[in-house]
Write a protein that binds this DNA or RNA. Structure first.
Length: 556
RNA sequence: GCCCUAGUAGCUCAGAGGAAGAGCAACAGCCUCCUAAGCUGUAGGUCACAGGUUCGAAUCCUGUCUAGGGCGCCA
């Protein structure tokens, strides 16, 4: 348990004791103690609403209860300096914050592991994200999904969950045939022959390039061979090329997967058929109009869904059910799917499927990544995947840079529409929020370098007793909040909690920097104490940035 | 028509029962000194609207309006 948590727990215990001593409530009656850290410093270090909660039980006005509690509480036991009563009955605690200094040695001992906890108890979690069809470049929406998904995985892993990152390759549907036909058309075109793009074909420059490459390497070799054979070849070829590009772009974006799961493999191992048989035997299906239906309405869906069409072929739902069954068979206790907004209507039937398979509906969580609109110089940039005129992940990385792109996507709550301001993300100025935390990190490196040059070496044994100014204590407090922030972000699966925290931490550091001089040759002990404080802040900054895939530079 | 998401400062967004917040933009200051991509201060609000629950609602419930998305035997 970290220092900030310890303090909170002590305070909570003392509050409960005071409630009992004051005879306001006892045992089960006592409401859960809520301790918050007020934004306004005038409201103390911690505040509780206990008096208001007790008003009903004790049948007294909240302010009177607050007075009573304030009188009963053991101040020394909880390092309380003063207690205020404010507003409708808040009790504000002003603490003797010297305990915060223990944060420094704790951070400096844990270093790159500061903030990591065992909160998740090694629970096996599988996160499936991106899973874009291998039929073209990753666009903006995928980029957001990749950034958010990867950040969620990092956060869960560091909060003590056993995380597996997975990409589901849709390599079995019609879209792959379409890809094959599109490549064929481009191939013929490259040979100067008559060709026609299929309906809904892929117009992207990548597919065009494949056709040209094939023509260059193999000439007209594929014109004369059997059509089925030819298309099979184009399928394989297209899939391979597309997957290579996807992996490369994602890797560059600092997104790695543990498992690349092929839809086709489900068919080959008979798992799709097996899932269908399982549901049939369990009575979760019925036949109507020559099709096999899944009784998804039994589990809260709007209508039943077709699994097998009347021509005997499967709908996309069936392999998906099989896939999710397979995930559970692999021992995952919690599944998290990160999906684009266009799939949200699909959630009820998937949750129904999970239940029909015999699992709890909460074992599948779906995070919806809302749409991204691109702006430049205040103007909306329209995109169309159909015509291939979309901004791709690669474009973003090139134009904006990886750090800024990752930060921008992590910065916003995933389930809200995002306006991505290209000019802002590209700007290398104080308007760009990504530099703020990076600058704090680089600044600390610079301070430590500068101290060395001035003959003040970093001294791990330095005393930190002299730490105590207002800005120093505020910085310490913020550093101490890191572990609980990571846990909170993991529970809410909310990477933007991390960027918010980083901003607050950087702000606390910059503020401290401007108020208190770190390197002072006239006072080496104090300099060395502050260097340890700065180093602690730097670890918290760096570790937080790691979670969202942003680099922590030594200089800027 | 039904469902999902959103509506909070000029702009972009946090906050999800407890005291209205940040960044940018605006205005006024701060470098003979460790990185001014920084700091300090000022100004800026009917939390879309109307009801309800509660000691207390931006937050929960109901309805309305606005914007975007989804509602295939497509994937």
């Amino acid at each position: 348990m970290n220092i900030a948590e310890q303090m909170k727990n002590t305070l909570k215990t003392e509050i409960i004791k005071a409630v009992e001593k004051a005879g306001l409530a006892s045992g089960e009656e006592i409401p859960e103690v809520v301790l918050e850290t007020p934004k306004d410093k005038a409201h103390g270090d911690f505040a509780t609403n206990m008096a208001m909660k007790l008003a009903k039980i004790a049948k007294k006005p909240p302010r009177q209860i607050a007075e009573n509690l304030a009188a009963q509480i053991d101040k020394d036991a909880a390092s309380i300096k003063t207690i205020d009563i404010a507003g409708p009955g808040f009790i504000n605690f002003f603490l003797d914050n010297s305990y915060l200094k223990d944060i420094i040695p704790a951070v400096l001992q844990e270093r790159e592991e500061y903030g990591w906890t065992n909160h998740g108890n090694g629970k096996k979690v599988q996160v499936e994200f991106v899973s874009a069809n291998p039929t073209g470049d990753l666009h903006l929406g995928h980029a957001r999904g990749a950034a958010v998904g990867d950040s969620i995985c990092n956060i869960l892993a560091k909060a003590g969950y056993d995380v597996s990152r997975e990409y589901y390759i849709n390599d079995a549907g019609n879209q792959i045939n379409n890809l094959a036909y599109s490549i064929e058309a481009r191939y013929l075109e490259a040979l100067g022959m008559e060709s026609k793009m299929p309906e809904g074909g892929y117009q992207g420059a990548d597919v065009k390039g494949f056709g040209e490459d094939l023509a260059k390497e193999h000439g007209d070799k594929y014109i004369s061979i059997d059509e089925a054979e030819r298309l099979a070849f184009f399928r394989e070829y297209g899939l391979k090329r597309e997957m290579e590009k996807l992996k490369e772009a994602l890797q560059e974006f600092r997104v790695e997967f543990d498992v690349w799961f092929s839809e086709t493999s489900l068919y080959e191992s008979g798992k799709v058929q097996a899932a269908l048989e399982f549901l049939k035997e369990k009575g979760e299906t019925y036949e109507e109009g020559g099709a096999v239906w899944f009784r998804s309405t039994e589990y809260g869906d709007d209508k039943d869904r077709v699994l097998v069409k009347n021509d005997g072929s499967f709908t996309y739902l069936l392999p998906d059910i099989s896939y999710h069954n397979n995930k559970f068979e692999r021992g995952f206790e919690q599944l998290i799917n990160v999906w684009g907004a266009d799939h949200h209507g699909y959630i009820p039937r998937m949750r129904a499927a999970v239940q029909a398979l015999g699992y709890d509906k909460d074992q599948l969580a779906v995070e919806i990544i809302q749409m991204v609109n691109l702006y430049e110089n205040g103007e909306r940039i329209k995109m169309s995947k159909r015509t291939g005129k979309a901004v791709t992940l690669k474009d973003l990385m090139e134009e904006v840079g990886i750090d800024a792109t990752r930060y921008f996507f992590a910065m916003r709550s995933p389930d809200t529409h995002l306006d991505f301001d290209l000019s802002l993300a590209k700007s290398e100025s104080n308007e760009n929020p990504v530099y703020y935390s990076q600058y704090a990190h680089a600044r600390i490196s610079s301070i430590l370098r500068s101290a060395e040059q001035k003959g003040i070496p970093y001294n791990p044994e330095a005393e930190i007793e002299e730490i105590g100014t207002e800005k120093e204590m505020e910085l310490l407090k913020k550093i101490g909040e890191f572990p609980e922030t990571v846990v909170f972000a993991a529970e809410k699966r909310a990477p933007h909690r991390i960027t918010n925290y980083l901003h607050e931490l950087a702000s606390a550091f910059h503020s401290f920097y401007n108020a208190n001089r770190v390197v002072d040759p006239e006072n080496v002990p104090l300099s060395q104490a502050r260097m340890k404080l700065a180093a602690s802040a730097q670890y918290a900054l760096k570790n937080g940035m790691t979670l969202i895939g942003v680099h922590a530079p030594e200089e800027m």
